[in-house]
Design a protein around this nucleic acid. Structure first.
Lengths: 214, 214, 214, 214
DNA sequence: AATGAATGAGATTTCATTCAT
DNA sequence: GATGAATGAAATCTCATTCAT
């Protein structure tokens, strides 16, 4: 504080505020949806008052949109880059992939965004489109590339790549929904890691017992 | 009321009204969510005026809850009963099951309810619980029974039943989400039937090429 | 009620409402200006509640604009038509004209509109322009025509018509301002009629005593 | 100020601040009215920030009132003194008077105050009263004195002095209104000097052609 | 002396709900 | 049974004012 930089303390605060507000908004929107979320709730959770939000955002809708846009880039770009360069086996790739995904879901903070997009797609179609194009289509393309290389390599058999991607990803989607919607009513904690392990097991071995492949 | 009195035609109308309102409400809630749905929208879509809704329901919340409760029983009970008695092969069962599911998704009318539950689980946790207990847990139990019998029969290998159910069901959940959220932005129509076929193929054969089972 | 016309009473009310609201708004806007006028004030004066205004107008600004547009046409069109056809002496014309104007000012209801336009010209320049073009320019043109004919006839001497119109009209403008701004503080009522008579006397006789014309 | 003491520049600045703020406020109030004028606008135009205004004035209302009171004294007192002592002809007096008035109107800076008073008379009746008593009544009294002496002298004929004052002043009032409200929409600049010349001409000669005095 | 981030009272606007017709 | 004009609580948003820096 008393070091060289003559940064006044409210100046540091000003830098941090938008982020604090977005963090608070993420939670409130995830909980109530866009329409039922009150600016006052968001403010309170961010530790400020209504008015303060308007110093940083022109209105509720822009808070929401900023949130949806902002929270995407970070996580995804890195993953995509690594995946695109990956050249090990598909099974190893998926093991690592679902390992990371499981951690994210268990932690639970960031999984609310997809839920928000799903819930508000009717009210903000442009956001759904944005998410679809910037996140989903890209992720599917990267995953599709990994699979295609596995097919070329002979690691897995040739099937419609588009469908295979979805079959692989579906349990992840389902887990996100589960976590944000039904998990609160679980009597015993659901074991996402074991679930993903079973998924991979079935993916690569099928359900049929050894030697009985249909 | 239950007497022999001659039923006049507007009386039949009266009987039909609540259903018409619920049909309208389903669409509006699916599109906008609970909070953003206006009673006037629902009324307009049902071909009546705002006031009329209050003749049949005490308020917006009750319309929503009735909707959520009402639309569940019908479809499911029958399916569950048939499934419980089913004793053919799992593969045949799933083929029929996903055939029906595909038809429902393509038609698209009834798939909005899960979306509503997901979107509003924060505002109506009791509904999410109800749906979870009455629909999901039951459906999972029925499906689990079918699988367990297949395991007993030696048709499929022994794995955690709970996880297997979810792996099987996940593409269905994903398709429902897709249909209600992202399908409007599809450049070419997504082929749900082929997707489900690929899913079953992978389930029973795995991804690995013949003879390479890991 | 039981007469021929099946007009339900709230139906009659609905017809009358917009007018009642505009009447109320005229008074409140004249008193407080646009920004300081509260929708609740307008509603209260119209004998309704805030919400009702929004059944008839999309918002405060539209109430204001409707008011400004609506209240103009009626009075002016008739006067203009008569004036354009008038072919008596200018002096008689002005005597009648200021007689009517005096009555309007004393009554005081309609003089608030010009004041509103003046006060809000900064916030609603498009209204000031509208008023200028539709009211003032037209009125000046009509008056200019009457004067020109009087010059042609030799009743009055040739001077810049544009300026003469303004000299003639100025005391009227001043009276309107006076009435809406300073009259409340008059210790004795100002006699607009005598003022206008003096004005006409000076117009036609000049200030100089008989025989001393400069 | 005119002393020998070395005046540091920020000290001079401090003295100047209230004046700079009032200058800025005058323009903003004239443009938007009291209620719609934002402290931030005034601050920005004065080249300071909101907070600074509160170092010199207790609040918005006081800025407004100070403005209204302050800007009156200066100009008027001098004029009044000169006019009271004036003993030339009325015509010469008015020629000089309107010459100065024309310059003030064309320059346009100071004419906004009357407009402000008119616009806000409803919200600040005490200001309207103050203006009426301190400015208008005094000005009318001075002008009335000049006219009365002209009547005594036989320069002009005997008419109600009160009305004559208003007839004389009306074109000035009108020009002030015009300038602040409608002039922005002029296609060609209005010539206030010629207008005033025509006014004086009519005042002293009447409208009637030579020898036809009615 | 000056700043500008933060506050919160108060305005506009929306819409579920009521009720006279 | 149905209507739709009217209500008023509750939300969003604005901006005069405060105060730590």
């Amino acid at each position: 504080m008393s070091q060289g930089a003559p940064v006044r303390s409210w100046s540091r605060r000003k830098q941090a505020r938008p982020g604090e507000i977005l963090d608070a908004a993420l939670k409130v929107f995830a909980e109530k949806g866009f329409a039922a979320a009150r600016m006052e709730d968001i403010a309170a959770r961010a530790g400020v008052t209504k008015g303060t939000i308007y110093l940083y955002f022109p209105g509720k809708e822009e808070v929401f949109k900023t949130l949806a846009r902002e929270y995407i880039g970070g996580t995804l770009a890195d993953v995509a880059k690594k995946a695109a360069q990956y050249d090990g086996s598909l099974r190893d790739f998926l093991t690592v992939f679902f390992g990371m995904a499981g951690a994210v879901i268990i932690e639970g903070e960031r999984t609310v965004l997809p839920k928000i997009i799903i819930a508000e797609s009717g009210n903000f179609p442009e956001l759904a489109r944005f998410y679809r194009e910037e996140v989903i289509d890209r992720a599917f393309a990267v995953m599709g590339g990994v699979i295609e290389r596995a097919m070329d390599r002979g690691e897995v058999r040739r099937l419609q790549v588009r469908d295979v991607v979805r079959v692989i990803v579906a349990p992840l989607v389902m887990s996100i929904i589960w976590r944000t919607t039904f998990a609160p009513f679980d009597t015993e904690a659901f074991d996402y890691k074991r679930f993903f392990a079973t998924h991979i097991e079935i993916l690569f071995g099928g359900l049929a017992p050894e030697g009985n492949k249909s």
